[in-house]
Design a protein around this nucleic acid. Sequence first.
DNA 1: TAGATTGTTAATCGATTAACAATC
DNA 2: TAGATTGTTAATCGATTAACAATC
Lengths: 217, 217
Amino acid sequence: MERFSNISMAVVRRLPKYYRYLEELLNNDIKRVSSQELSKITGFTASQIRQDLNCFGGFGQQGYGYNAEELHKEIGKILGLDRLYKTVIIGAGNLGHAIANYSNFGKSGFKTIGIFDVNEKVIGEKLNDIVIMHIDKLEEFVKENNITIGIICTPKAYSQDAADILIKGGVQGIWNFAPVDLKVPDSVIVENVNLSESLFTVSYLLKEREESNIKKK
Amino acid sequence: MERFSNISMAVVRRLPKYYRYLEELLNNDIKRVSSQELSKITGFTASQIRQDLNCFGGFGQQGYGYNAEELHKEIGKILGLDRLYKTVIIGAGNLGHAIANYSNFGKSGFKTIGIFDVNEKVIGEKLNDIVIMHIDKLEEFVKENNITIGIICTPKAYSQDAADILIKGGVQGIWNFAPVDLKVPDSVIVENVNLSESLFTVSYLLKEREESNIKKK
DNA sequence: TAGATTGTTAATCGATTAACAATC
DNA sequence: TAGATTGTTAATCGATTAACAATC
């Protein structure tokens, strides 16, 4: 995956966090927030927060801080949440179900309009009002409906095939839950969610913690 | 969450990747691998790979490289995958189902032995041979069965309550899928999987890409 | 032995933090 | 105006990369 700007991924991955924390502030009717206050909430340093935000513009006001609502809106724009993304889900298993039913994504502009599987048994069933279709129809569907993001919830062995079809159809981004490094053209965005890697990290940290306890004794 | 060693999280998060890549090599009957070859497969530099591995010991041999099987086994040990972790899942919705049915975790030593929910309708149902129990039984179950890891698949609003009960019961780690920063004692490991944040990153990168295309014209 | 490749130290690079002038 | 807090530059810290002696 090629990058197109000099904003570091470390900064990019903090943006959704800022967005979430600001949402919470707004829910609590807080209108104004300083980098110091944000620091307390987020755990990042105030300095880092000001640096991060300044990558995108001067959203604050000296002596005042940031207008929570405005900042929230601006970060939403930076994240591209002011748009509509049409998505398809490949794989109607449990994970596909979970993603399809997670209504929060809809609020942020992500709309799943197609779900695909190879299993004849589930084809024709409805999932969150969307009929599950056979994977044979995927490429054409992606083309005809101008799908932006493909969500891969297939088993590992089928994930590269799914990616290939999605790309032929013209998706620009892939959200991949299969534990595989997909081969895709440079111009296609891939974001991997690797649950095993995440769980193994827990395991590592538990072991590390235990070993340090033994040492202390 | 407190850390107990001076191994950086950057290194820790690469370990499961090494483990996965080595598994693939073994599946392809490759017995021996150099840091240079690993570099090609993983995308990390050979230098970084040697540095990373040397945090834990000298697993290689000069002039030869690494024995793939041995290295795989050693990293497994480092990750703590040579043990059995008993887990419970809180929240028997789609995500809870997906996690419960993901058999791969079992192979790595993670065994789910309890699933809990508040919804009376699902209590008593079986999920992957485990009867879904009421959350009221959670604390005692965790205590009696010496559960190590709690997996939170509840809605956001219930996640902190779930964490509190798990901690009272004595879990040492929490794998949290709710978009919330749980408040837990320092000694408890928390690993968050935040799907929204991951999806928003896709969205950001798509927008960035598009903007750079406009500029080029 | 000669060639290959590690383990490890030193150099570089990038990200985070500190500091403070600008300014609301 | 005085106080507060940003935006931004400079300093520090940590992670990555390069280099090479050790050694199989």
